[in-house]
Design a protein around this nucleic acid. Structure first.
Lengths: 248, 248
DNA sequence: GGTCCTCTTTGACCCAGATCAAGCGCGCGA
DNA sequence: TCGCGCGCTTGATCTGGGTCAAAGAGGACC
């Protein structure tokens, strides 16, 4: 909690790293001023739970830096990740009180938050916010449906390749690295978290990553640092059309 | 195509069966008049494809009666259903030209359509429409995430029970039947379509339905007419908390 | 009333991935 | 510097659901 207080250092929206991608992306200067007046930052350490499923959630917000996950758990402990929240992603649902999922910080995390009530009022008055939120929600819905294909119909190897290509792609667009040649990135998830995302066991994840390494689809430095020498090859392994590639 | 023309019989929004649940649910009388002026009906026969994935889509619309499915297909033919569209559900995405999925009528289908351009303009001028669309999209996102748990972590038997309970629930709210005692409904999907929804093969679907019948969880009359004597039992079989029940 | 044809059921067998069980290796705290 | 723990790898075995194959059950059409 003290940590959270410290994080409330002054941040200007103008030089916010997610200014042009988050829910505020379409706001004009004056609208941004209003948001700036009611926003506050919260930070979390890796492993900390942001909210538990079913808990009352009196804020909404955007991931500024770090990574969080959305997970669902059955009574007997089986868990399924249902969302991977990267910088600029939105957390929380206007018009609902409780959280439907566990939200967990998997790395150190900074969020830009708004108390729900004021945000909802703002949304009614500022179409730019509602428009952007609709757009982001539709994108998430598409991503969720893409993921349903992965979960329902892909083999373990294809699942791993799909996850790697998604992380690689999002990492590339976020960091604006060139997409030519080899892609390099760090896995932000443990083997177990990957298993929860993919509907697999952590042993299978480990085995398939080893297999992809053995077959030269990826290189590993340590456990987390990944090099993809040929992205098209990875896409093929994922079972995707090798075109749906690298834009926006 | 002739069939579609015929379907343009006069329908009044006032006595539309999905008036209070569709994208127009929040519209005032005057807003409704504007929509009424630009809407048109299209009908499709069972089995007909509404749009192919990738095709240009110059309209959006709501399912009025009947059932449609959203599916994704891999090059080698593996297919995954990613959406089940019941009356009042919305089809199409404002701000995107092509369809991301195959949309197929699984029963005879009537849709209330709007050409995309006018609808988008309308959305900008009528916050009630955008608000309702956001709400519906958030609901669909929740449903998709629920489904990710089903696909990723449930057994074949649990998957079947989950599908049955979802159909039973939606059918009950749609037809406003009392939820006391036995639930009765018709399966709107073939075994193959169920398999595509659940990430199973049609043989496994058939076997598990037989097993649920043998164990008295459901009764079957013919292949499609289902009776659920004890809904709580079905929920347990689905692996869900037996509470998240029967409201709205 | 017979004959397709599509949807479905059921059986026999097989395999991808789960489960159970050792170990490895790196970072951290004492 | 050591040891301890957590994340990870790898092996051996088991099994749920896939695959392949055959046959029943309604319709719809002639």
């Amino acid at each position: 909690m003290l940590k959270e207080e410290q994080a409330q250092i002054s941040h200007e929206c103008d030089d916010c790293p997610i200014r042009h991608r988050a829910v505020c992306a379409r706001c004009e200067a004056d609208e941004l001023d209003l948001l700036e007046a009611i926003k506050y930052y919260r930070s979390f350490e890796a492993g900390q739970t942001v909210i538990w499923s079913g808990d009352k959630m009196d804020f909404v917000g955007s991931v500024v830096t770090g990574i969080a996950t959305l997970t669902q758990t059955m009574e007997d402990g089986r868990t399924q990740m249902v969302g991977l929240l990267l910088p600029s992603d939105f957390v929380g649902r206007p018009g609902r009180d409780g959280s439907a999922y566990d939200v967990v910080a998997t790395t150190d995390l900074v969020m830009c938050c708004f108390r729900k009530k004021p945000f909802e009022q703002m949304m009614e008055r500022t179409p730019h916010i509602a428009q952007r939120l609709l757009e982001m929600t539709l994108d998430e819905l598409d991503a969720a449906r893409e993921w349903m294909l992965v979960l329902g119909r892909k083999t373990a190897r294809e699942k791993i390749a799909s996850l790697l290509s998604i992380i690689a792609r999002r990492d590339a667009t976020l960091n604006l690295r060139p997409t030519e040649g080899a892609l390099v990135f760090d896995l932000p998830l443990t083997r177990e978290a990957m298993a929860d995302y993919l509907g697999l066991t952590l042993e299978t994840v480990s085995r398939q990553i080893s297999a992809l390494k053995r077959d030269g689809v990826i290189h590993l430095e340590g456990k987390r640092h990944v090099t993809v020498p040929d992205f098209t090859r990875l896409m093929e392994e994922a079972g995707d059309d090798a075109d749906g590639g690298m834009f926006a």
